[in-house]
């Protein structure tokens, strides 16, 4: 699982999408979200009924995030909005590269959020209970990329499948090239950090050597 640091093709794609107005993105997403909410909010509510708050899913580098509003319209209710990360005030935040989030959501056996968290590919902040309950809810209901895709109108599904098939090899090649480029650019910085670390360790070990006992006079003792 990739770390949340470093550039990826989808982070760059997100940056390129920055000029697109949020209102346009919202209009585009609204019918899809309405469909998803109609299909999934009922099943999800079983495990979210004790939760309230906004869970913000944030792909690193993207100019927008997905805010899930839980319990706003009654126990277990779920709705979803697109927001600018800087304007969103969530109760909990889940952050990872778009690649990691897609991989987690596409997993056949469901997302292994713990593994991604242990590897530091996934960051959690805020209300941990809301994140946990949401994770159990999507897993138990079988919500994943495949089922979400199937809820889309048929022409969308076809277009999505074709574009995914074509873009996957491009993405993989670009990922490799980006990794090489970053390695080249960062290697001088890494060498410098390693050099400074060695120097720091040397200084620390020099500073923790055995100390000679200080001879204290009777007068100093009397003065504490």
């Amino acid at each position: 699982m990739a770390d949340a640091s470093g550039l990826t093709p989808l982070i760059l794609a997100g940056q390129l999408a920055r000029p697109i107005p949020l209102s346009f993105m919202r209009r585009l997403a609204a019918p899809v979200f309405r469909r998803w909410v109609a299909t999934w909010s009922g099943p999800l509510s079983n495990r979210l009924c004790d939760q309230t708050g906004i869970l913000s899913i944030r792909p690193v580098g993207w100019p927008l995030c997905f805010d899930l509003h839980v319990g706003e319209q009654g126990p277990g209710s779920v709705s979803i909005t697109l927001e600018r990360p800087e304007d969103s005030v969530p109760t909990a935040r889940v952050t990872a590269t778009p690649e990691v989030l897609l991989k987690l959501m596409a997993a056949e056996d469901g997302p292994d959020g713990d593994g991604a968290f242990f590897s530091r590919a996934l960051h959690i902040e805020g209300d941990t209970g809301l994140v946990m309950a949401f994770r159990y809810a999507i897993e138990d209901t079988g919500l994943n990329l495949h089922t979400l895709k199937n809820d889309l109108p048929r022409p969308f599904i076809r277009a999505l499948e074709v574009s995914t098939r074509r873009l996957e090899p491009v993405h993989d090649r670009f990922s490799r090239d980006l990794a090489k480029m970053q390695e080249l650019l960062l290697s001088p910085v890494r060498s410098e950090i390693a050099r400074l670390n060695t120097r720091l360790k040397r200084l620390e070990s020099a500073g923790t050597g055995p100390r000679r006992a200080k001879v204290v006079s009777r007068k100093e003792l009397a003065n504490g």
Binding site: A107, D109, G110, D112, D114, G115, E139
Partner: peptide, 10 residues
């Protein structure tokens, strides 16, 4: 029991 399906399956 707190782990997901991916953990259980594998």
């Amino acid at each position: 029991r707190q782990r997901g399906k991916a953990y259980v399956a594998q």
